[in-house]
Design a protein around this nucleic acid. Structure first.
Length: 566
RNA sequence: UGCCCGAUGGUGUAACUGGCAACACGUCUGACUCUGGAUCAGAAGAGUCUAGGUUCGAGCCCUAGUCGGGCAACCA
């Protein structure tokens, strides 16, 4: 988005806390004045808008300070990970507009190195093979948050024995869970993570990249920092809950360093969005239990969901910039996200007239069988997008809610005896209505004033309202999916006693209508974006076919009339 | 009960590192308009969690407390 890019105009754009840290590091000449970040997803789910914040941060910071960003898959747990996720993650980052160039890495690329370092730790007396089973360790040795733990009986076994056992762990001689390699730190540490954390565990599982080469896999803490070190990362940015891991991160790196260089971990508050959930586990539940059609359901807060919904990468990057970054918990108003996409689409979207809930309108005094080609502007915000012709004839469709028999005050649209302008065409006046036996309006009869054609150059009368329309004969049919927020509650996790977040699902998050659209959209292809005038922004769904058009509503237009009547 | 992090309008983020709180979203007015959109103009809304302290001066520093979040996975 090019609009008000303040950078150069503003005297001094204030820095967020990460930028302040980086500028300080740069000024002090730390790490050869390099800035090198990384985005480290675990390939166990699809990326969501919260990840987008992190991606924008990591790539954005590197870009700002002329550094680099690596993509690194944190694939240390084969039982949860899959290539399907690797592929979707790459696609999403690219779509967002970021490029990791040739630096696509995997923690699993470093398994050999990590193994070597583990041996070094053992030799240095900093790690040992523990045979306590998980339950025993947790119950009898780890202690609790307010009581210290105690040493494992295996803690002080001879180095040679550790070496032998660890190698045999690697060789597959022991069953899952029977042994683990621990760092030897401090079982009494007030920081639970420093109480001899596990470094390696046994998992006889096939890894999506290394296959069956390994049956021991490094834990996150051991793999992550060392991977940062291998890649020369300077600023390792993660979310708040990892902050207690930092002492361990530092400890592990100190065991292997041989230069001045040190990667450093910094933590920021993850993104929360009102009326949305962000937990991967819960999103997975929505998918698996079919509350939504898939990870890319347009109601999902996933990047692929937003893409299908019609959001642009620009709008998401703009949003990520607007939410800022700090260390305090936050809940961003979805209204900011909606503002972000409207802001972008307003400038780029092709305008078109579409009637979502059609009612027939007949212009009694308009000649039979006549068709006019009316000029319409493609985008009033961008003259270069030009104009188009829209067919006009005696029988039209208009929006059912643009007519009220007994209109309330300040209603500017059509009503008996009232005049209204048909967008780009004539002023019409309602003369009568036809109804079916249930009292439902079937046809609205009007007369038109031939002297009021738009662009005719004739002096124009003013009318209060303008409504959109579509020529009945020329209209294209389309299925239109109207999406609304997925959850009713601002915080979907606040559920009643005994119920979970799914009880807060919005039963009306999807409404399907069959609309009439001007012929311009006939050849529209998946992902094409439009503004349906007076209604909202829509995009062509990926499942749309020629002759069977399918639109998704990205976001409605702001509607001060609807708001007024709330 | 231990340790760590945080606290600024409804929401988010600032405040040139001590000089009497700004920007964005949202809300409300009004203008303009052939989209009740967009745009433009304007308004309301916090005295910065509380109590002390340092200082000529504190949202920024110190002390104590309160509240919120995190940590006891062979997850990341």
């Amino acid at each position: 988005m090019t609009k008000n890019s303040p950078e150069n105009t503003e005297k001094k754009r204030s820095l967020n806390f990460l930028e302040q840290i980086i500028e300080k590091d740069l000024a002090e000449g730390k790490n050869e004045k390099r800035v090198h970040t990384r985005f480290p997803p675990e390939p166990n789910g699809y990326l969501h808008i919260g990840h987008a914040k992190s991606i924008c941060l990591n790539f954005g910071l590197a870009e700002k300070y002329k550094g680099l960003t690596n993509l690194r898959f944190d694939d240390t747990n084969p039982v949860k990970e899959d290539v399907e996720y690797v592929d979707s993650i790459k696609e999403d980052i690219k779509w967002l507009g970021f490029d990791w160039e040739e630096r696509e890495y995997y923690a699993s690329d470093y398994f050999d190195q990590l193994y070597e370092w583990a041996i070094k730790l053992i030799k240095d007396g900093k790690a040992y093979v523990d045979e306590l089973d998980q339950e025993d360790f947790a119950k009898n040795y780890r202690g609790t948050v307010n009581t210290p733990g105690k040493n494992s009986p295996y803690r002080n076994r001879p180095m040679e024995e550790n070496l032998d056992l660890f190698e045999r762990m690697k060789n597959g001689e022991f069953p899952d869970g029977s042994k683990v390699l621990r760092a030897k730190i401090d079982m009494a540490s007030p920081n639970m993570l420093m109480r001899d954390p596990a470094l390696y565990r046994i998992k006889h599982a096939t890894h999506h990249r290394t296959g069956d080469k390994w049956c021991i896999y490094p834990m996150y803490d051991y793999a992550h920092g060392q991977s940062d070190y291998i890649e020369g990362i300077t600023h390792s940015i993660c979310t708040l809950e990892f902050d207690i891991h930092r002492p361990l991160y530092d400890w592990l790196i100190e065991q292997i360093v041989d230069t001045e260089y040190r990667p450093h971990q910094y933590e920021f508050a993850r993104l929360n969005l009102s009326y949305t959930i962000m937990s991967k586990r819960k999103l997975l539940k929505l998918v698996e239990e079919k509350y939504v059609s898939g990870w890319n359901d347009p109601r999902m807060p996933t990047i692929s969901g937003f893409r299908r919904r019609g959001y642009t990468p620009e709008s998401i990057r703009y949003f990520a910039d607007k939410v800022g970054v700090a260390k305090r918990d936050n809940v961003i108003d979805v209204a900011l996200l909606e503002h972000s996409i409207r802001e972008d689409l307003n400038k780029i979207a092709q305008r078109v007239m579409a009637v979502l809930d059609p009612v027939k309108l007949v212009i009694d005094n308009y000649p039979e069988n006549e068709t006019e080609e009316i000029d319409a502007v493609n985008n009033p915000e961008d003259e270069s997008m030009g104009k188009r012709k829209v067919p006009f004839s005696k029988e039209l469709y208009i929006e059912r809610k643009d007519f009220i028999e007994d209109p309330p005050r300040k209603f500017f649209r059509l009503a008996p005896d009232r005049e209204v302008r048909l967008r780009y065409a004539y002023i019409i006046k309602c003369v009568s209505v036809e109804k079916d036996e249930d009292g439902k309006i079937t046809t609205i009869h009007c007369t038109y004033d031939p002297d009021t054609k738009s662009g005719s150059g004739k002096p124009q009368r003013k009318v209060k309202g303008t409504i959109h329309w579509v020529s009945a004969e020329h209209a294209v049919n389309a299925e239109i999916r109207l999406y609304d927020r997925l959850f009713l509650k601002e915080d979907p996790n606040k559920a009643e006693e005994g119920k979970d977040f799914t009880s807060n699902l919005n039963p009306d998050s999807l409404n399907i209508t069959h609309g009439k659209i001007e012929p311009f959209v006939e050849g529209a292809k998946p992902d094409d974006k439009f503004q349906f005038e007076r209604t909202g922004y829509f995009c062509v769904d990926k499942d749309s076919k020629p002759g069977k058009l399918l639109f998704n509503r990205t976001v409605p237009l702001r509607d001060s009339w609807a708001k007024r009547n709330k």
